[in-house]
């Protein structure tokens, strides 16, 4: 365990020294500035339309903005996760950074776990803080909270944990460039699946929903992201719910214990594959 913490600390130290945190902070502040501006303007703009019955433009605006925040948080955290891990094994081995470390008494398993803990801590911390700030901005501008405040944050933390693990697994078998490309393609595939699910639900096309569901099973980070979106406006009903779901940040995929268990199992399998692959790899 000590060796794992030494490597995790090394990852964090690297992030500080390479000014990863400074760059991330500056760009995130720029994003939050734009988000705040957009949020204020959006709430101003929807006022004249009014509403009534099960149709609440204010709720649609709020849930959509929450959804935009969740999407952006996951996207930015994914960029961070991929760049922190894309060359962790094969990339670093090709550059000669890995060999001096893994001949030390720490095992390869501990090394990989250390990289996972280090990158995971950075990404989880980042996504949770960013989600919280987004929620506060929307609340300040529109006076609304998400229908579930903590659930989406947890789902996002789970999603980014799986992405970190997948990127580490990819780094065992692929070069840094190939792994980076593969990760962003997986992430994109997940987004497309989410959109497919929304379209399928809105149009009542069962086959499209099934395909999207299968992709969410294969890529649980997408399922958790959809669950986060769903939880943001899960109490909405009627036309409001339909319009939210038709939007780019709608979701018809509620969270379930069974899916959480599957996500945890998936994470364990990814970790096992990465460990076995790394231990068998010639360096």
């Amino acid at each position: 365990m000590t060796a794992t913490l030494i490597i995790a600390r090394h990852v964090l130290q690297e992030s500080v020294r390479r000014r990863v945190f400074v760059v991330v902070l500056v760009l995130t502040l720029a994003f939050l500035g734009l988000f705040t501006l957009a949020t204020v303007e959006a709430f101003k703009a929807q006022t004249p339309f009014g509403g009534g019955g099960t149709f609440s433009p204010h709720a649609i605006t709020a849930v959509t903005l929450f959804g935009l925040g969740v999407f952006s948080a996951l996207f930015l955290a994914t960029v961070l996760a991929v760049f922190l891990t894309l060359g962790a094994v094969r990339g670093d081995a090709e550059r000669g950074l890995l060999q001096p470390l893994v001949v030390r008494p720490l095992g390869r398993r501990e090394f990989l776990l250390g990289r996972f803990v280090g990158a995971g801590a950075v990404c989880i911390g980042y996504i949770v803080i960013l989600y919280a700030v987004v929620v506060l901005i929307v609340h300040q501008a529109g006076g609304r909270w998400p229908d579930h405040v903590f659930g989406p944050g947890l789902a996002l933390a789970g999603a980014i944990t799986i992405l970190v693990a997948l990127s580490l697994l990819g780094s065992v078998f692929m070069s840094a460039t190939a792994n980076g490309i593969a990760m962003f393609m997986l992430y994109g595939a997940g987004l497309v699946a989410g959109l497919l699910a929304s379209i399928g639900a809105a149009l009542g096309v069962h086959s499209v929903q099934t395909i999207a569901h299968d992709i969410a099973i294969a890529l649980p980070f997408e399922g958790l992201y959809q669950a986060a979106l769903h939880a943001l406006g899960s109490n909405q009903t009627g036309l409001t719910q339909v319009l939210v779901n038709l939007g780019p940040f709608g979701s018809s995929h509620p969270n379930s214990v069974a899916f959480d268990v599957w996500a945890a199992f998936y994470l364990a399998v990814v970790a096992l594959l990465a460990t076995v692959g790394f231990e068998r790899r010639d360096l």
């Binding site: 030494i6 390479r18 000669g96």
Partner: peptide
């Protein structure tokens, strides 16, 4: 072990490289 092709993280100082290896060893 000294590998034929090796690198240390460019952001580390010489002393920090040795300190890291001391901890790992």
């Amino acid at each position: 072990y000294l590998a034929e092709l090796f690198r240390f993280p460019g952001w580390c100082t010489a002393s920090e490289v040795l300190a890291l290896h001391q901890r790992l060893a």
